[in-house]
Amino acid sequence: MQPAPSFKIPESVLVVIHTPDLRVLLIERADHPGYWQSVTGSRDHVDEPLAETARREVLEETGFDIAAAGGELRDWQLANVYEIYPHWRHRYAPGVTRNTEHVFGLQLPGVLAPTLSPREHLAWVWLPWHEAADRCFSPSNAEAVLQLPRFSAASSTTP
């Protein structure tokens, strides 16, 4: 008997990694060269806490252990619902066409060099937030980066 196929859960995180001076880390997808993005990834199981999904994806995609790197992960309490690109729908159960993406910010104390998985990403770059927004291939990712100054200012006034 064959095991049931394992499909991606259509609920994911987007983690905007940035420095206090609002430089943003972008990584280039290996499966689509020229597609630059922040860290993204789906829940491993339906009851995985979103913050844990964010920590896991950051570690998998950049090698950054948030606590060891002195980072601060913040849930921006934003969610984007979008149509899954047709060329990626085969990863989801039949009939699934939409994904809910939860946005997080990760402030690191400064620019760090990530360790990329070559099967997932080809290159990385740190850019000022407005330039990073222009480079993102995903409209929801670009919009999240454009929100960075607002969330960064809010985090500096929160006790």
Rank of each mutant, 00 (worst) to 15 (best):
L127V: 00
A142R: 09
G110K: 09
T158F: 12
D134V: 13
E120H: 13
A144Q: 00
A153R: 02
A123N: 15
W126H: 05
S117K: 10
V125C: 10
L127G: 07
A142E: 06
F151R: 01
W124H: 13
Q147M: 12
P139R: 14
A113P: 05
P139W: 08
Q147Y: 11
T157A: 14
L108M: 10
V111C: 03
L122Y: 11
P128N: 09
F151S: 01
H130P: 06
L122T: 09
L116K: 02
R135I: 08
P114D: 05
N141H: 15
S117G: 14
E131Q: 15
S117R: 13
L122Q: 13
G110V: 05
P114V: 00
V111R: 05
E120A: 13
R119P: 01
L146F: 01
L146G: 01
Q147G: 13
A113V: 11
L116S: 03
Q147C: 13
E120G: 15
P149R: 00
E131Y: 07
T115Q: 11
A144M: 01
V145H: 05
A154Q: 13
P149H: 01
V145G: 07
H121N: 12
S155H: 07
A123T: 05
H130N: 06
R119S: 11
L108H: 08
F151L: 01
V145F: 09
P149S: 01
G110F: 05
R135N: 07
N141K: 11
L112S: 07
L127Q: 04
L116I: 03
A133T: 02
W124F: 12
T158N: 08
D134Q: 15
H130M: 09
A154N: 03
F137C: 14
W124C: 04
S140P: 06
R135W: 05
R119D: 11
L116A: 04
S138A: 10
S156I: 07
Q147E: 10
S138V: 04
C136M: 10
